[in-house]
Structure formats: C-alpha cells, structure tokens
Amino acid sequence: MNEDSTPQSSTEPARPSSGWDRELLEKLLLEALVEQRKARRWSLAFRVFLVAAIGLGFILAFKPLAQGGLTAPSKAHTAVVDVIGTIAEGGEIDADTIIEGLREAAEAKGVKGIVLRMNTPGGSPVQSAYVYDEIRRIKKEHPALPIYAVVSDLCASGGYYIASATDRIFVNPASIVGSIGVIMNGFGFVGTLEKLGVERRVMTAGDHKAILDPFGPVDPAEKQHVQQLLNAVHQQFIAAVKAGRGDRLKDRPEIFSGLVWTGAEGIELGLVDAVGELHQVAETVIGAKEIVNYSHRETLLDRVIRQLGTSVETALTKLATSSPRL
C-alpha cells in the first residue's frame, strides 16, 4: 500500500476555543448572575413590603388597646397632660411629648379645659422653655380655653418654669414649689490624682476647650465666664415667670433665689394660686367632670413600632444600594 494513503492518527489534540466563544460564555454567565440578583432583590422587596404591611395592620389593630382603649369623647371633658419625671430631651419626658399632648387636647372636640398634672423636679431649661412658649401660643389661638397646672408632690425649677405659663396653678398645702434658679455642678479630682501618682495628659486646640475639666484646677476667667452664662439663663427664667405670673407675685427677692416652699407658702408668695387637686379642678373650676388623658409616652408597642420602622428602612437601603458583583 502506498505510504501516502496511510490513515492519520485520531489522537491529535483539540483546538482551543476561539476568543469570541469565551466572551460569549462570560457574557451569558454575567447575565445569568444579574438575573439571579434581580430575582433576589425582588424577593427581598416583597418580604420587606409584607413585613411593613403586617406591621401597619398590627399598629392599626392594637395601638388603641395599648393606649388604654381611650378615644377622646366629643362631649364635654377635661383634658389632662402629664408632666411627671425629669424634663430632658429623650428622657422620661421632653418638650416633644408634652407639646404633642397639648396640641391634641387643644384641637379636640369637647375639651373645656386643659390640666397639666405636674410632679417634676425640673430639668432642661431649653425643653422647659419650649413647653412654656407652646402654652402661651395655645392661649393666644384659643383664648377661651383655660389651661391650668395641678401639682401633686413637686413642681420645681424647669417644672415651675412650665407651670408659670398656665392661667392658674393649684397645689396641695404640702406640695414643694419654686427653685427658680440655674445650676451646673461637678467634682474636682486634682488632689486625688496627685495622691495616686497619676499623670494627667490633655491636649486642646483653643485656650478654654478643657473648661471645667474635673482633673485640672479651676481657672478664674473660666469660672467667671460660666457664672455669666448661668446668670443669663437665670434672667431668662425670671423674665418668663414674671410674664406668666404678673402682679400675683409678691415683691420678694428670695422668690428668685433658688429656694423652695410648701404649697401653702407658695400661695402667700404668689407663686401659686390655690389649693386643689385634679378631679376637683376638673369638676368645679373647669366644669367638666369627665377626664381624658392626652399624655404621650413611649410604650412597649411604640418601641416595637420604632424598631420595626428602623428594620424596614435598613432593608430598603440595602435593597436600593445593592448591585451585582463578581
């Protein structure tokens, strides 16, 4: 047989794929990955929507029960807003919660008068000033709507700041009222560090950035500056009380010294007006025996709702910023 007719061996290696085949394969894989991620995003979006819908239904169904199941009646009643606890932003009570209750009460049908039920040692002068201004605003918008303060145990400092904006203040003879002053306190540990052999290291940009540092000696210039600051806030406090109480205040300098008095003594000084408790004021002064509480405080349900909202917001943020990656 001729050598040229000998069959070729079948063990010859396969030729590699061309470049365009590889690019096509990569493109198909990437498109599949994108479609997969889109499906995941829509699945996440659906779950977020489902959770939000369930949460909204839960809120609508159970929030009235969490708030005691009370709905403001349209018939005549006395509105109550609690000012109980230390007044501080984000604390037991703050301006936002008090103002929200006041506004709802002022706009509700059937409200014949508003009572601030007070038992507070005071707190932030800023938060107190916000509520004071809101009471005066409501009185201008609703001049026929009386706003009273009823004190149980204590109405001092920022609490009295708020109460002074009301039309009348009622107390128990043993209530504690007053404390018209401003305080800023702390401790000094300079000698303690020396005894312990501790070396203090602090760096600042600004000569007085470490003002009132408890581990350094008191600087006379800084002390004078802080005192001027306290005096300025005190004068704002005094001006607010005088504007609210007017001629009822006796001309006694000690009224603004930071001292406190009993309810009985407060009547004599013109700090408060009369003896009275909530139900008696509602029935005989306002003339609406029924009482409805408009106070706003964060309940367990409110915390759940807030956390649910945060979770949904986080999920939506992730959804909006997600993108396919290799």
Rank of each mutant, 00 (worst) to 15 (best):
R297L: 07
Q224I: 01
I180G: 05
A106G: 12
H296D: 01
K38W: 09
Y294M: 01
A39H: 09
S322Y: 05
I211R: 02
K242R: 15
I291R: 00
F58C: 13
S323G: 09
S152H: 09
E31A: 12
I99F: 04
L154V: 15
W42Y: 14
R306N: 06
G68L: 03
E12R: 06
T299Q: 07
F187C: 02
S157H: 07
L116P: 06
T97K: 14
V51F: 15
I286N: 02
L230N: 11
N185Q: 14
L271D: 05
G266V: 10
S323K: 14
D82M: 09
V151K: 05
V292A: 00
A264E: 15
E268I: 09
I176T: 13
G110K: 00
D167M: 07
D219Y: 00
E254Q: 12
V275I: 15
V131R: 00
V48W: 01
V150H: 07
R40L: 10
G197K: 04
S43G: 12
A108K: 00
W20A: 07
K195R: 14
A14E: 10
K223G: 09
T86C: 01
D133F: 06
A72K: 01
A243D: 15
V111R: 00
V80Y: 03
A163Q: 03
H279S: 10
T97C: 08
T11Q: 04
L230Y: 08
S18P: 02
G263K: 06
R325N: 11
P64E: 00
N2T: 12
F62R: 03
V171F: 04
S17N: 08
I211C: 07
L259I: 07
L116F: 07
A52M: 15
V198D: 05
G244F: 04
S175D: 08
A315I: 08
F187S: 12
H142Q: 12
G19H: 06
R37D: 08
N185M: 08
G159L: 04
D153V: 10
Q67I: 02
D247P: 13
S295G: 00
S5M: 11
E268F: 09
A144G: 06
T204P: 00
Y160A: 02
V177N: 03
I59H: 11
A106L: 08
V150S: 01
P143E: 01
N172H: 14
Q127T: 10
K209D: 13
F237R: 03
P13N: 00
V272A: 06
D207H: 03
I183Y: 06
F189N: 04
G19M: 08
S175A: 10
L229W: 13
R248A: 15
G244N: 02
D133S: 13
V177K: 07
V51W: 13
L145S: 01
G122C: 01
V260N: 13
H208G: 02
S128F: 08
H208S: 13
A61K: 08
